[in-house]
């Protein structure tokens, strides 16, 4: 869900920009320069994942995968998803300029929250627990994103209240889809390369040359 320019009120836009700047600062602090190649390539992967469409009956939705981004990237999900949104706005025309802060908060803050809460469960030894945590992370992140979008719409005027409710309802099936896809992705990573969940979390593994 991209909010466009012109819909939100000035205080909401400024508030979004301030929170996004804070999140970016925290996210960048965790990114030492040795981790930037990993963060960049993973950020590119999440950009590509957002181009994957899942058919729903005659229509289709594209994946967002911000819950998985939170699990894999932790705080670095903030700058990584910001970069994705910036590129989408600039090169695809999705989103806008003044709403970039709000859009970043709506996508990245839920990612970081579910990432911090559920990362211990997905990186543990129990595969079933990891899959369940993946399911929770994928769907919870979408629900939180939808609630954030609804909140900023509602804060911008009572006229948007109906639209805000519609956003939440429309995202419920998306939350189910994202949860199941995220659970499958976590299951595969857990089996094939569990250290992925710690790649950007721990201290720098490679000392500066």
């Amino acid at each position: 869900m991209h909010i466009v320019d012109g819909a939100l009120s000035a205080p909401v836009l400024i508030g979004g920009a301030v929170v996004a700047t804070g999140g970016l600062a925290l996210g960048l602090r965790s990114l030492t320069l040795e981790k930037i190649p990993a963060a960049g390539v993973l950020s590119a992967t999440f950009f590509v994942a957002a181009l994957v469409h899942v058919p729903i009956g005659p229509s289709s939705v594209h994946l967002i995968m911000n819950g998985l981004a939170g699990l894999v990237l932790g705080w670095a999900a903030f700058p990584a998803l910001f970069v994705g949104l910036l590129l989408q706005a600039v090169f695809f025309g999705f989103g806008g300029v003044t709403v970039l802060g709000v859009n970043t908060v709506a996508i990245a803050l839920p990612a970081v929250m579910v990432g911090l809460a559920l990362r211990p469960a997905v990186s543990g030894p129990d595969a079933r627990l990891a899959a369940l945590a993946g399911l929770a992370a994928g769907s919870l992140a979408i629900v939180l994103t939808a609630l954030t979008v609804a909140l900023v719409l509602w804060l911008s005027g009572d006229a948007f209240l109906a639209a805000a409710k519609l956003v939440v309802i429309a995202h419920l099936p998306v939350a189910v889809i994202e949860g199941l896809v995220c659970a499958a992705a976590v299951t595969l990573i857990h089996r094939a390369k569990p250290e992925l969940f710690a790649a950007l979390a721990g201290p720098a593994t490679l000392r500066p040359a």
């Binding site: 040795e34 190649p37 990993a38 960049g40 390539v41 993973l42 590119a44 992967t45 590509v48 994942a49 994957v52 899942v54 058919p55 729903i56 009956g57 994946l63 995968m65 998985l68 894999v72 889809i177 199941l180 896809v181 995220c182 659970a183 499958a184 992705a185 976590v186 299951t187 595969l188 990573i189 094939a192 390369k193 992925l196 790649a199 490679l206």
Partner: peptide, 29 residues
């Protein structure tokens, strides 16, 4: 299609992309 098999397959696909991305980033570094 709209079914569980599709969602699981796409999930494995994205998981695989992430695994390969991390391995690629190790080689890049």
């Amino acid at each position: 299609r709209t079914n569980g098999h599709t969602l699981r397959s796409l999930g494995y696909l994205i998981g695989m992309l992430l695994v390969r991305a991390l391995e690629r980033s190790e080689r890049i570094l």
